[in-house]
Nucleic acid binder design. Structure first.
Lengths: 217, 217
DNA sequence: AAAGATATTTAGATATGACTAAAAAAATAT
DNA sequence: ATATTTTTTTAGTCATATCTAAATATCTTT
């Protein structure tokens, strides 16, 4: 598998979450920051390798082996992120790019030993679950903070956008995974949320709220 | 820099050690397990990028920036090897292949933090020195065991061949870096050496002796 | 159901890094 | 010093992964 192939597989997996249907060529092109024609070329190749189900004009979905491959790459990505934060003292907003490279290192032994060394972590620094060796993992029950009803209270368990800009914003306002958040009020005008977090009251924009996952009770 | 370019630079560096002259196209081709014509192509490209001095039919040598690049790759390779052995519990004969991949990860911050995490090691698991960030490092004074005179005594400080086969052989016969070795006798017939190591007497072939570095006094 | 808009695919081109076969230069031997 | 061998380079191909431009299929409107 080339890096490029692996990145396509990962993109298809991420796009396919939730909507269990077919993923469109254009959606993949946008995610990969490439042209639709390049996607078509690659889909033919991945189809040959039995990693995706592809029919002209119908979009693609991952086959069983495609899904397994995707999960193994995601497993590696998230384990490396834990390593960078827990062991090397990286900030959580700095790890993504490096993990994008490390996820392509080929050595099963390495991944297993890394997993052991890290103490079999279940979540990465952004709250995303780490697939087990056999590909199994359970998504937590989570909703976007922006969709929580007024007076709802829950644990902050993850971020949707994991860009450095957003993560830095959270750090600056001392919002961290594991914090308890209570929705006090919602502004009708722009959807801003008044929330209570660690004894503090905070007003956050809808865009912020739409990128924070919480777990209700 | 592509992986391929980096691997060529590394190969030229290794071939250029000792013989401070030009490195031949054929030598590079052999080391890289590729064809001389491919080497010529790449030399033109690396020359464009000012990483090698290349003149048709004259061989190549690294420029100052080529040398720096080579040392930074070697630094990464050796630091990762230390990580794999010290932290992840790999055997010393298992680390080379994985480190060949890890050495191409691009992130200065990662290398620096790894160095710190490992406690600024000076040597990798095979006894090779790890270049500092600024590229400086001192080779130990070392000779091949096969070239040591009879009755010489020294510390085993490194291996020349670091293939799994050779390293496993050393493990099997309990020969490790740091052991004191004394040359008792040399067979005239085939160059075999009688050595004393950890109270034991051992007879080793010349080929073995020609891949072990020792440091006299 | 035809027209227009959007999405997707095909065809043909480019850059990288490899290869083979043939030509040319350098080294070695007679 | 000439012939032979070895080394190195050139020329032309190939595969991968991209791209642009043009063609075609599907979706959306009316």
């Amino acid at each position: 598998m080339t890096f490029s192939e692996e990145n396509y597989i990962k993109a298809i997996y991420h796009l396919g979450i939730g909507n269990e249907k077919m993923v469109s060529t254009n959606a993949i092109a946008e995610k990969m920051e490439t042209k639709p024609s390049s996607v078509t070329d690659m889909m033919k190749k991945l189809s040959e390798k039995n990693l995706v189900n592809y029919k002209k004009y119908q979009g693609v979905s991952l086959t069983e082996s495609g899904r397994k491959l995707a999960l193994s790459i995601i497993r590696k990505h998230r384990l490396w992120e834990v390593f960078l934060v827990d062991k090397l003292d990286f900030q959580w907003d700095e790890v993504h790019e490096v993990a994008e490279q490390l996820e392509h290192i080929k050595s099963e032994k390495l991944v297993d030993k890394l997993d052991t060394y890290l103490g079999y972590p279940k979540l990465d620094p952004h709250g995303d679950p780490i697939p087990a060796k056999d590909g199994k993992f359970k998504e937590m029950v989570k909703i976007l903070l922006s969709e929580a009803p007024i007076n709802a209270m829950g644990l902050c368990i993850g971020v949707k956008d994991s860009s450095a800009t957003f993560l830095k914003f959270l750090d600056k306002h001392k919002i961290a995974l594991g914090d308890t958040i209570k929705v006090l009020d919602k502004e009708e005008f722009d959807g801003s949320l008044h929330i209570q977090i660690k004894q503090r009251n905070l007003l956050i924009s809808e865009q912020i709220a739409a990128n924070l996952f919480i777990n209700l009770g």
